[in-house]
Each structure stands twice: as C-alpha cells, then as structure tokens.
C-alpha cells in the first residue's frame, strides 16, 4: 500500500511539471511549427532568397536594358511584398506565442493581485 501512496505522490508532482511542459515547451513549439508551415508554401511564391540573389539579373533572360530594369523593379516589388507578408505573419505568430505564454501567468496574477 505504501508503494501506491508514494506512486500517487510522485504522479501529483509529475502532472504539474507535465502541465507546464505541455503548455510552454510543446505549446510554443507547436506555434513555431505552424508558423513555418504557413511560411514554407508562401516561400514558393515569394522566394525571398532567390529573388534577392537574382535582384540585378535581367527578367526572363531579357538581356536588354529594359530587361535589367524590369528585373530590378519587379524583384524589388516582390521582395518588398514578401518581406511585408513575412513580417506580418511573424508579428501574428509572436503575438500568439506571447498571449499563449501569458495565459497561466495572467490568471495567476489576476488571482493574487487585486
């Protein structure tokens, strides 16, 4: 019977630690993963790194002055739009993460500080 009591005591503390681990470690990890899942397909459209690498390359192999100018203009627009979208998503993700992390603390704060 003594073993059973010890086991229950151990489980009690284990569940509290598990709850915190689930909330903070797993919860924040899930938010990060989901953010990446949104960003990854978007990068197939905005392709920020490749666009930046090819910023001064002519558009669609048009090696005329117009091609170079258009390449720079369009790629700059794409970079700007991509950066804007990526930033917006990152801001939303960070907000969700902060709110998520703050929920238990704020409930606790709400209880102990009138």
């Amino acid at each position: 019977m003594y073993t059973g009591v010890l086991y229950l005591a151990e489980r009690f503390f284990f569940r509290i630690v598990s709850f915190l681990r689930h909330w903070y470690v797993d919860g924040l990890r899930t938010i990060a993963r989901e953010t990446m899942n949104v960003l990854e397909p978007l990068d197939r459209t905005f392709a920020l790194r490749i666009t930046a690498k090819n910023l001064f390359q002519p558009l669609y192999q048009d090696h005329t002055v117009v091609g170079h100018v258009l390449g720079f203009v369009f790629r700059s627009l794409r970079l700007s739009a991509g950066s804007l979208v990526y930033s917006a998503i990152l801001v939303v993700a960070i907000t969700v993460a902060v709110v998520w992390a703050g929920i238990p603390i704020s409930i606790l704060w709400y209880g102990i500080h009138p």
């Binding site: 569940r15 598990s18 709850f19 689930h22 909330w23 238990p104 409930i107």
Partner: peptide, 26 residues
C-alpha cells in the same frame, strides 16, 4: 472571489491539458 476564480481557471486549464493528452504517451 477573484482568488477562487483564478484557481478554478487554472484547474480547468490543467484538466483540459489532461484530456488533450489522455491518449498520448508521456
């Protein structure tokens, strides 16, 4: 009572976490 409401909400969060993880490994 705020203190009790806070404790109740924290307990509810804990129980929700248990339900979510009830069929999952540790």
């Amino acid at each position: 009572l705020r203190e009790l409401r806070s404790a109740g909400m924290l307990t509810a969060l804990f129980l929700i976490d248990r339900v979510v993880h009830a069929w999952k490994p540790e």
